Computed example of a mutant assay.
Amino acid sequence: MRALETCLYADNLDLAEPFYTEVLGLTLQGKVAGRHLFYRLSGSMLLIFNPGASAQPGDVPPHAGQPGGHACLAIDRADTNRWEARLKAHGVAVTRYAWGDRGESLYFHDPAGNVLELAPASIWGILDA
């Protein structure tokens, strides 16, 4: 089993979209203005919902959370420095954390206050893809 979707919440999708598309370079799969942004990752999806809109009845059961969640996106261990430089070039404050010989994580916030992490799978003892 593996995670197919990861969901975060953002009150302002107009701020979230350029962050995830331009800063992180993710591919936008679909969106409904004011409701959600869906991004394709390698083998899974990242869903960004407006909590007020996703709590409304519709085709799927209503659900909502609050901004302030956490998601970790896997990167190649060799790309950690490149990602740190890219984030900082976009004005994103980055905290780097070493997991001993397993690799390093980059922690930062999106515009909604969600804590994002970029890290190699080796921090969990999983071989990098």
Score class of each variant (00 low, 15 high):
76 D>C: 14
80 T>N: 00
80 T>M: 05
72 C>L: 05
73 L>F: 10
62 P>W: 09
59 D>W: 13
44 S>Q: 14
82 R>I: 13
46 L>F: 04
64 A>R: 15
49 F>V: 12
75 I>T: 04
52 G>T: 14
78 A>F: 00
42 S>F: 07
47 L>F: 15
55 A>H: 11
52 G>K: 15
61 P>N: 12
76 D>M: 15
79 D>F: 05
59 D>E: 14
81 N>L: 14
77 R>T: 05
51 P>T: 07
46 L>T: 00
74 A>I: 10
46 L>H: 00
63 H>I: 07
77 R>W: 00
68 G>M: 15
57 P>V: 04
43 G>H: 03
41 L>A: 02
50 N>S: 07
82 R>A: 15
51 P>K: 02
70 H>A: 03
59 D>I: 13
70 H>P: 03
42 S>M: 10
49 F>P: 01
58 G>E: 08
48 I>D: 00
66 Q>E: 12
71 A>G: 10
55 A>N: 15
63 H>P: 00
75 I>Q: 08
72 C>G: 10
78 A>R: 03
65 G>M: 05
68 G>Q: 14
58 G>F: 10
63 H>W: 08
46 L>N: 01
69 G>R: 01
62 P>V: 01
63 H>A: 12
72 C>M: 10
78 A>P: 00
70 H>E: 07
53 A>V: 11
75 I>H: 03
41 L>C: 11
45 M>S: 04
44 S>Y: 06
52 G>V: 08
53 A>G: 08
60 V>K: 06
47 L>G: 09
49 F>M: 13
45 M>G: 07
80 T>Y: 00
49 F>Y: 14
74 A>D: 14
44 S>C: 13
46 L>G: 00
54 S>A: 15
47 L>D: 11
53 A>P: 09
72 C>E: 04
82 R>F: 11
43 G>E: 06
45 M>I: 13
43 G>R: 07
45 M>L: 13
80 T>F: 00
44 S>V: 06
80 T>A: 09
63 H>R: 13
75 I>A: 06
49 F>L: 14
47 L>T: 10
47 L>Q: 06
79 D>H: 09
68 G>R: 15
64 A>P: 12
50 N>M: 03
57 P>M: 08
64 A>W: 13
81 N>D: 15
82 R>C: 11
63 H>F: 12
49 F>K: 09
64 A>N: 12
43 G>Y: 03
55 A>L: 14
51 P>G: 01
78 A>S: 06
55 A>T: 13
70 H>V: 09
67 P>I: 01
73 L>E: 02
72 C>K: 05
41 L>N: 05
62 P>L: 09
57 P>C: 09
56 Q>P: 03
69 G>V: 08
46 L>C: 06
54 S>R: 03
66 Q>H: 11
56 Q>C: 06
65 G>Q: 01
53 A>Q: 07
49 F>Q: 13
42 S>W: 07
82 R>M: 11
41 L>P: 07
80 T>Q: 07
61 P>R: 11
73 L>A: 02
73 L>Y: 10
47 L>E: 02
50 N>L: 02
56 Q>T: 11
48 I>F: 03
57 P>G: 10
75 I>S: 03
77 R>D: 08
41 L>Y: 04
47 L>S: 07
46 L>Q: 00
45 M>K: 10
69 G>W: 01
54 S>V: 02
63 H>G: 09
80 T>L: 05
67 P>M: 08
47 L>N: 09
66 Q>K: 14
54 S>H: 07
57 P>L: 06
